[in-house]
């Protein structure tokens, strides 16, 4: 699990250097969530965005 988290942080750091907030960028962010089953990754990002909007 620790390695998965390290990979995720490294992929996210790379993504943050790229052009952020395009559609492709959001998909990449979801895809980077390797600690979650593939089918839950997009849903997780949508939950995150919704929570951040309503907080």
């Amino acid at each position: 699990m620790e390695n998965v988290m390290i990979n995720w942080i490294s992929r996210m750091q790379k993504l943050e250097d790229e052009t952020p907030f395009t559609d492709e960028w959001w998909h990449e962010c979801a895809d980077a969530l390797e600690m979650l089953p593939k089918e839950h990754r997009e849903g997780f990002m949508i939950s995150y965005v919704n929570m951040a909007l309503q907080q």
């Binding site: 996210m12 750091q13 943050e16 907030f21 949508i46 909007l53």
Partner: peptide
């Protein structure tokens, strides 16, 4: 559109901050 709203609400996200938030 929700992602657009997210950008409007958080317009100045810096390096490493999305990782910290997620």
């Amino acid at each position: 559109f929700c992602k657009t709203l997210f950008q409007r609400k958080y317009p100045n996200i810096g390096a490493g901050e999305m990782v910290k938030s997620l």
